[in-house]
Design a binder for these strands. Structure first.
Lengths: 201, 201
DNA sequence: ACCTGAACACCGTTCAAGT
DNA sequence: ACCTGAACACCGTTCAAGT
């Protein structure tokens, strides 16, 4: 996801500290290069300070990445909530889900969902980062479950299972489309999911 | 994928050089940590030589990783071919596809498909590595297309499109299941794909 | 409170020197 | 042909010293 990575979380929109600037720059970098590719020295250069100065704002790369991942799911949750609020129709929500979230990061520099990248890096992730990345998946699945239940015709258990399969399939579509730098391929994959019935609408 | 990462490619089964041992160890490492996490020093330790000695077998980390990715898709192609050969029924092939390939790597140390991990690392991949990782996707999609056409009832274009969506969805299922170290979740996701009609059978 | 240069142990890579 | 220690520029991180 992206499209919301630039802004701070809804909860903190009154401040604009240098921590916010660091988080914004680090998010961009991590979406393109992952946690292991998040380079402290070049991140510092982006923000206009020395590498050592970063450690005044965050005690370690791990803590910085955890803050980045936390901000990321907070912003995703806010975006999904506002999508739910402005559209009463659950089918419209489901139709817009892939394009409003995963497609957006491909549009901006062929970037990936931060959480997907970090999931791949699972074995090398500090525990705090792993936890926040996991919450991103939970937020998406919970939202999809809620919307699917609003469509009706299935049990809570069935809705959760389908929500998971939608989330996994859309994440996979983003990964494959990124591998070919091909936005049209992403659209084609989502279209296939829809025609097969995996995605309602 | 995995389950075939230990063996050499069909084409070279007569030799067992130290290059083969390096490739086998590097494949394991790259499936867990990616290209950027492929550590030359600890790889050398695995094989029982010094880091500098690796450069006698491969001119660079990039060339080594390209050889690893090449061997990887060669082995995948061999496995898929033998699956196709031993089973005349295309629906059986499709039913076994997720478990014979992507599930196998999760079974062995919660590892990922090497090509999926490398696709995430797209921006940091040397051109030679990127090319080989891409071929892995092509091999899978070509095989799935062939099998779907054997099932019948669709055009070549439709088959290719569905093949891509199956590949993307299964890769996504592996990613999400790895993020929770949960094999049962992988099975549940594949089951969902089947019930929705994305996967025939 | 925030920044910094210098230093640490690490990384990929090179190379001259060994067998 | 294959291996190696030492060195290079890089990495994350620390720390004493600055304002």
């Amino acid at each position: 996801m992206t499209g919301f990575y630039l802004g701070k979380s809804m909860k903190q929109q009154t401040t604009n500290s240098s921590s916010d600037k660091i988080i914004a720059a680090a998010t961009k970098m991590a979406q393109a290069h992952g946690y292991s590719g998040l380079n402290v020295r070049s991140l510092a250069e982006d923000v206009g300070i020395r590498a050592a100065s970063l450690y005044h704002h965050f005690p370690s790369k791990a803590e910085l990445a955890a803050a980045v991942a936390k901000r990321y799911w907070e912003d995703a949750a806010a975006l999904l909530d506002s999508l739910w609020m402005e559209t009463e129709d659950p089918l419209t929500c489901l139709r817009r889900y892939p394009s409003e979230t995963f497609r957006k990061s491909l549009e901006v520099g062929n970037r990936m969902c931060l959480a997907s990248f970090m999931t791949a890096e699972y074995d090398d992730l500090p525990e705090a980062v792993r936890k926040e990345a996991q919450i991103f998946a939970d937020v998406n699945v919970a939202w999809l479950t809620k919307v699917l239940l609003a469509v009706g015709g299935m049990s809570a258990k069935e809705a959760k299972k389908q929500a998971l399969s939608i989330f996994a399939a859309v994440a996979g579509a983003q990964l494959i489309a990124r591998g070919r730098s091909d936005l049209a391929l992403f659209d084609s994959l989502i279209d296939s999911y829809r025609k097969s019935g995996l995605l309602p609408g």
